[in-house]
Design a protein around this nucleic acid. Structure first.
Lengths: 199, 199
DNA sequence: TTACTTACGAGTTTCTTACGAGTTTTTTAA
DNA sequence: TTAAAAAACTCGTAAGAAACTCGTAAGTAA
């Protein structure tokens, strides 16, 4: 992400100030350090850079006051949390790996699972595929979701019913899972996309 | 893709300027750097080179303005060249679109095609999927390739034989294509990966 | 109160885009 | 081979958008 020279100068100042003083600068310190004459201008920069994902306002960092600025990096990766297989608990990786994704998927609530098995074969999701998940606890009817039922994780289609939830596999060899209120149910997220690597 | 000397000089300037300054040049900087006397001329170059897929305008990159010029590298996109459907000529897009990909796929010889139809359904490649192609004229046995046979483009598996080439679909409704020496045959590339977007 | 951040409104400057018209070089077809 | 057509390249200007600026006032947490 290339910044304009002025914006670049702005974040550079924050970076060096922060390492020099062990705390981020206040708006006024930025103003003086960069020869800006208005707080509005400083504020404009912070807003812009926040929109662009370069800066982030943090709570309670600064000496006297609460909000301040801090850097964040974009590396186009998402955590590969583990392997999901129909009928088994989610196998979570110990040493977290990261996988590169198209930048648009970069989001703190997104993560990746690798699919094991063929329970979704009719949706053309095959063994070894990587699915990109958005962590959220609601879904639309028919969406593909990661669901946890009684400690078992599955990738299924989501169909709410009058008295519970149905989770449909996309493979005739597997049964529909009917979730009743007494089951322990949790939505892990919805599937945003899929990536497959050939070699 | 060879460019005219002038155009080549133009992109070379952008390339070196960008690496030197960590940002792409503005139109005026290009104008001065190349001894051009009109912004219209710079604009003309940019338009031309954009049509040819060499340059691309990016959001929020440049010093003062929003849209600017940048080379196809570094922005994590690949050109979406068109739609490929079994049994039809490749439908090439006029106004070139770009799609974000995982950064590792970034390569000048790579491009994207969108798949129409279900001729590869048994390989779990479905209608609407995006395949990432590496442009090259040889392939390994069994690899999925983009092939042009007598002006018809297809996505198939590649099987060389003693007296020619066989192209295997992955759908029983389609026939194997047998390419003999008198056929007009060309490899468009091999499939490196696949991306699918759900909404 | 004090030391900050946030919000508003209204500039100025820098840069892109659009337009219209011209010249030079290369390709095409008689 | 040569003239006509097309493509490559040039110019200058003006409109408009984005980037950047200012000053002040209101809000907020220690």
């Amino acid at each position: 992400m290339h910044l304009s020279p002025k914006k670049q100068r702005f974040v550079d100042f924050i970076r060096t100030f922060t390492t020099d003083n062990d705390r981020p600068p206040t708006f006024i310190e930025i103003m003086e350090g960069l020869d800006i004459r208005s707080l509005g201008t400083v504020n404009w920069y912070v807003n812009e850079l926040e929109k662009e994902g370069v800066l982030k306002r943090m709570k309670g960092y600064n000496g006297k006051r609460a909000l301040s600025v801090l850097e964040q990096k974009m590396d186009n990766t998402l955590p590969l949390l583990g392997i999901i297989a129909a009928g088994y608990p989610l196998e979570v990786f110990e040493n977290r790996e990261f996988l590169e994704v198209p930048p648009a998927y970069q989001h703190p609530d997104n993560y990746i699972l690798q699919v094991r098995g063929d329970s979704m074969i009719e949706d053309n999701i095959q063994d070894g595929d990587y699915v990109i998940i958005r962590r959220q606890d609601e879904a639309n009817r028919g969406q593909k979701v990661v669901a946890y039922v009684n400690d078992e994780a599955t990738l299924k289609r989501y169909y709410p019913t009058d008295d519970g939830i149905e989770l449909h596999p996309r493979n005739p060899d597997y049964d529909i899972i009917r979730v009743s209120p007494e089951d322990d149910f949790r939505l892990g997220g919805v599937v945003l996309g899929l990536m497959r690597k050939y070699n």
